[in-house]
């Protein structure tokens, strides 16, 4: 009896140490898998955006719709001469914020997936953006910016 109780106690303690056991989305993960490095994931309610290796070796932003189980196009967002650095999506998957390097500059952009439109966002005073994060409602954007050799974080409205 004592042995059984101590075994049970041990199991309970062990399970507590292991924490929350994550369940892989098996069917999805095999479809997301690409040869090469995948970076900067950001989850929407029904999808995910991230930076993946493109067909010609350059990196590009990709969107995967969990409801349909398929990737979706992002017309006008990816450029072969640009290097995406950080990406973030809102809950609906309609707005995507992107930091990318182009022509020796680093720029901050907002992409509207429904309109396939890209809008540059200006940092004032000027700075070099690095990581970006959209709020789930898509109305606010937080960005890590380098100014004067220091990293700062600022938040802006994106109506």
């Amino acid at each position: 009896m004592r042995l059984l109780a101590s075994t049970l106690l041990g199991l309970v303690l062990l399970s507590g140490c292991q924490g929350l056991r994550l369940q892989p989305l098996m069917g999805v993960n095999t479809r997301l898998s690409t040869p090469g490095d995948d970076r900067s994931p950001s989850m929407a309610r029904q999808g995910v955006v991230w930076i993946a290796p493109g067909p010609a070796g350059q990196h590009q932003v990709r969107w995967f719709d969990l409801a349909s189980g398929m990737g979706g196009p992002l017309p006008g967002l990816n450029r072969p001469d640009a290097q995406p650095i950080s990406v973030s999506v809102d809950a609906k998957g309609s707005r995507i914020a992107l930091v990318r390097s182009l022509d020796g500059r680093t720029e901050l952009l907002l992409y509207n997936r429904n309109l396939a439109s890209v809008r540059p966002l200006m940092l004032v005073p000027a700075g070099v953006p690095a990581r970006v994060a959209l709020s789930a409602d898509g109305q606010q954007l937080a960005v890590q910016v380098s100014r004067g050799g220091r990293w700062e974080v600022e938040v802006m409205r994106v109506p």
Binding site: A91, A133, A136, D137, Q140, V155
Partner: peptide
């Protein structure tokens, strides 16, 4: 570094 926002910011 590394900012993140809650749903409504």
């Amino acid at each position: 570094e590394d900012p993140a926002l809650s749903g409504n910011g």
